[in-house]
């Protein structure tokens, strides 16, 4: 079975090496400061106690107060998985360092996160839209993206017994 390195464990290990790098740690994940992200991830990849050489998934989440980029890291040798996050609270132009130099496998996934969520990955050599066309207005996966003309709340009445109002700020108000 793949063991999960909890956010608290990985945060403790990071803090011993990079004292100010960890912003928040929960059992599920560890949040790293963007300034130290590349050093921390490179260390997680190369250090003999970590060896997270495989970037399983890179994606972005709009938490409304901030954007976060989520990295799921896997180690084949030790059969472990861990979750690292980095945040940006700039809604107009969120910038996060690119990890393409650490894992080239991040290239297309960063382009996807840029295309749909509008996160700018600083240092990515080829950050273009990938699914939508150039000139597309806005970033559709953001929660404040209006996806229906006239502010329709389509589909909400399909939740049985649920009033629609509860679903404000989900991009459909």
């Amino acid at each position: 079975m793949t063991a999960t390195v909890t956010g608290l464990e990985v945060a403790g290990a990071i803090e011993q090496r990079f004292p100010d790098a960890v912003v928040e740690a929960t059992p599920e994940y560890a949040v790293v400061a963007p300034e130290e992200l590349i050093e921390v991830l490179t260390w997680l990849r190369d250090d003999d106690s970590m060896l997270f050489k495989f970037l399983s998934s890179l994606t972005a989440v709009d938490r409304e107060e901030w954007f976060e980029v989520v990295y799921h890291l896997e180690s084949f040798r030790t059969n472990r998985i861990t979750v690292i996050k980095v945040r940006s609270d700039d809604r107009d132009d969120p910038i996060v360092p690119s990890v393409v130099d650490v894992w080239p496998g991040a290239q297309l996934q960063e382009r996807e996160a840029y295309d749909l969520m509008g996160i700018r990955f600083e240092g990515n050599p080829d950050l273009r839209r990938i699914f939508l066309w150039d000139g597309f207005a806005g970033f559709p996966l953001r929660k404040d993206y209006m996806n229906l003309a006239g502010g329709q709340m389509a589909g909400l009445e399909r939740f049985p017994g649920e009033p629609g109002l509860e679903f404000n700020n989900r991009g459909t108000q």
Binding site: F131, P140, N147, G155, G171
Partner: peptide
């Protein structure tokens, strides 16, 4: 790519 992009990740949120 993107010719078959149906925005499933957004649709799923509703």
């Amino acid at each position: 790519m993107g010719y078959l992009h149906r925005s499933m990740e957004k649709l799923a949120e509703e």
